[in-house]
Design a binder for these strands. Structure first.
Lengths: 228, 228
DNA sequence: CCAAAAGTGTTGGTAGTACACCCATGA
DNA sequence: TCATGGGTGTACTACCAACACTTTTGG
């Protein structure tokens, strides 16, 4: 009845970043070792014996990409016996969001081994990371429709149109500006500031908005029904 | 940089059963070995090297309780370093539903080591199983409000009031009979049969309903917005 | 003055909620 | 005939969706 279990435990992180100009991106790293050496993959790795899964994710992100995560939650555990060609590895996938102002990587060169990829232009991926990303995108979409997400993906102050574009991009459908604004403002977690957007090319500059953190997190905690 | 990982992987199952008379129950086993010997715990155990997590859950349920599961999905992975006092064990928790007609265990004696417990009357539990159950109940509640669940918890044919009681019990609030019926019937996955409920004590017998499986699973797959 | 993006209200339809009386059965 | 639970319809309200013109800025 006794047997020796030979299964390892790893974490992988799907980290989303968003900018109005470049859309929704995912952070990937280029693998330096086999298997899938030279391929792009999700940041992640084996869990140490004494750390929590969240600590492991944060450690790997620090080591591999230098990024500071703003929001992190568990996504799903992937465990097909043959998902790693060498040993059996059970991967606990995490879902993360970062703010544009922590996008240091965007300035990196192509030679870097950590890089943002627009979700429309993902490269071939190692392991089953394609599946993990697919699930993460679904999670982001559904989160967006039942919880106010956005604080974690936008700067502290932003023009209203950025939020609208975020929703349109992630949900992949057009948003009616007037109805959207009515709906969002009714919740009361957004406040208009007196500041205006700096000249961004052409067009009328909009006022900047900011989140009322207290009310925002209260609503998130209550899992308020959002229904965009 | 190299280290030897000493983490084991297990599965635990939170299996829900429902009867109109006894309400919502969870299947527990009594542990025969340390740690927590003699305590009640969720069915589960270590994953074998070559089996999937789902296979492990089904095997453990077969070995420990003899139950046939009707619906199974992954719930969450619990991994606090000290959740098992001996070794570090990462537990992938599953969420399961069974039909009343597979409730063989209800007939067992108190001496049995597998037993149904009403969710209002749970015993002290081993490990962090209390937390796992808490999360599973939340999941069941939220599933009920955005997906048609019920097929997996009720017999093939049932009076409409059973479905209503199921929702009232799980959501822990009263349901307006007329509005509930209107809402449910609009989806078209329930069909009225000509049969009537057998005498169940007193009162007028209701017609029996059955699920239109095809339409039911179509709606489930589409993740239709349900909003009871 | 032209192009580009921001700001703003009204109306009609629909879906949700509240609510109470009669009916069939067994004891 | 009484107690118990099943079956049924309407009216009001609130939310959502559709929809277009004016304003501000930079070039």
């Amino acid at each position: 009845m006794k047997f020796t279990q030979k299964i390892k435990v790893s974490v992988d992180a799907v980290v989303f970043g968003y900018t109005p100009s470049e859309g929704l991106s995912i952070l990937l790293i280029k693998r330096k070792i086999a298997p899938f050496k030279g391929n792009w993959a999700l940041p992640g790795g084996l869990v140490r014996n004494e750390e929590t899964l969240e600590q492991a994710v944060e450690r790997e992100l620090r080591e591999e990409t230098g990024i500071t995560i703003n929001y992190l939650e568990q996504l799903y555990t992937f465990a097909k016996p043959d998902r790693d060609p060498r040993n059996r590895v059970v991967a606990v996938a995490y879902f993360g969001l970062v703010r544009p102002d922590t996008f240091e990587l965007h300035a990196n060169t192509d030679a870097s081994d950590a890089q943002w990829f627009n979700i429309q232009e993902l490269p071939v991926l190692a392991f089953d990371h394609q599946d993990i990303i697919k699930l993460a995108i679904q999670r982001l979409q559904s989160k967006l429709t039942y919880q106010p997400v956005g604080f974690e993906l936008l700067d502290q102050k932003f023009p209203f149109s950025d939020l609208e574009k975020l929703y349109a991009t992630v949900l992949n459908r057009p948003i009616d500006r007037r109805n959207f604004k009515k709906k969002i403002m009714k919740f009361g977690f957004l406040e208009e500031t007196k500041e205006k957007q700096k000249h961004q090319g052409s067009g009328r500059p909009g006022y900047l908005f900011k989140f009322n953190e207290q009310r925002y997190f209260q609503l998130k905690k209550d899992g308020i029904n959002f229904e965009i």
